[in-house]
Simulated assay, not measured.
Amino acid sequence: MKKQYNKLVRDGVPQIIIESGRQCKTRTLSDQEYKEALLTKIVEEVEEFRTSNSEEELADIYEVLDSLIEFLQYEPMHIDYLKMKKKENRGSFKDRIFLEDVVE
């Protein structure tokens, strides 16, 4: 029985499938396809985390973000710097503030 996935998977998944005695069809994505697949994967992993609250799913989110940062050739330390600057200027989310409305 064939099951369609059509999604980005970790590099070791095809080998795991083959070692389990199954067959799989894969292809290498173009740059644009890869970027879109990474963005789709982030949403998928966030949704999985929302339902499971699992540290493992949170780790998956980090892995996808790391892959996106590397693909876009962003400097991880610069991303950390931007995060720190935003935190200094606007704060973090630790106080759990939920903005309901603003009157102009």
Rank of each mutant, 00 (worst) to 15 (best):
Q4M: 13
Q4R: 15
Q4V: 08
Y5V: 14
N6P: 00
K7H: 11
K7P: 06
K7S: 09
K7F: 06
K7T: 09
L8K: 11
R10Q: 01
G12N: 15
G12F: 13
V13I: 15
P14Y: 11
Q15N: 14
I17G: 08
I18Q: 14
I18V: 12
I18S: 08
E19D: 15
E19R: 15
S20I: 07
S20K: 14
G21T: 03
G21Y: 03
R22N: 09
Q23D: 05
Q23H: 01
C24R: 04
R27A: 06
Q32F: 05
Q32I: 12
E33Y: 00
E33Q: 04
E33L: 01
E33R: 03
E36R: 14
A37I: 09
A37P: 07
L39G: 06
I42T: 14
I42E: 10
V43F: 08
E44P: 02
E45Q: 10
E47H: 03
E48C: 03
F49E: 05
S54E: 12
E56V: 01
L58I: 10
L58G: 13
A59T: 09
D60W: 07
D60Y: 08
Y62H: 07
E63N: 11
E63Y: 08
L65C: 06
L68Y: 06
I69T: 07
I69H: 01
F71P: 04
Q73L: 06
Y74P: 02
E75S: 12
E75C: 10
H78Q: 13
H78T: 13
Y81V: 05
L82Q: 06
M84S: 05
M84T: 02
K86W: 04
K86V: 08
K86G: 11
N89L: 14
R90S: 02
G91V: 05
G91F: 03
S92T: 13
S92Y: 07
K94R: 13
D95E: 15
D95I: 04
R96C: 00
I97D: 03
L99E: 14
E100F: 03
E100W: 04
E100H: 14
D101Y: 08
